[in-house]
Amino acid sequence: MEAPQNQQSRSAPKWWLGSTLALSFVGFLDASYLTAKHYLNFEIPCSILNGCEQVLTSQYATLFGVPVALLGALYYLAVFLLAVVYLDRGKEIFLKGAVFLPIAGFFATLWFLFVQGVLLRALCFYCLASALITTLLFCLSLFYLRRQRMH
């Protein structure tokens, strides 16, 4: 089904949609990598190249036994798929999902930055990359909401 062009361009410019798709896909790869590290390695070796082992083996790395990296991967995948469905169907509801999910994701990111910087005092490169991606997605969401209000 074709998206009504006028509605789509009014709701979300092409660059906005493209950025959301690209960022959420890279975020999905990043979080999937951390999830795979969690499941595939007996123990994650400590490396001077990134400080992830302390973060990924901490008590904050799982929620009810589920690695938070997996929840992150599902979150990015959801944003990505919502943006794709919107691109395909042109229905506002899917766009709204892709706008509001990163707002929740941003608050989760603030918590994880606090955990890494204050509680663990250990930084993980891949976690910081995810924080940056979610922050950019959050900025895109704010841009969209501001634009909506102006219209």
């Binding site: 896909f25 790869l29 999937s32 990598y33 795979a36 595939l40 390695n41 995948l77």
Partner: peptide, 14 residues
């Protein structure tokens, strides 16, 4: 998505 998952698994595997 399939290519991404394949890439991630090959990078993360011990």
């Amino acid at each position: 998505i399939a290519a991404g998952i394949f890439l991630v698994l090959s990078l993360a595997a011990p």
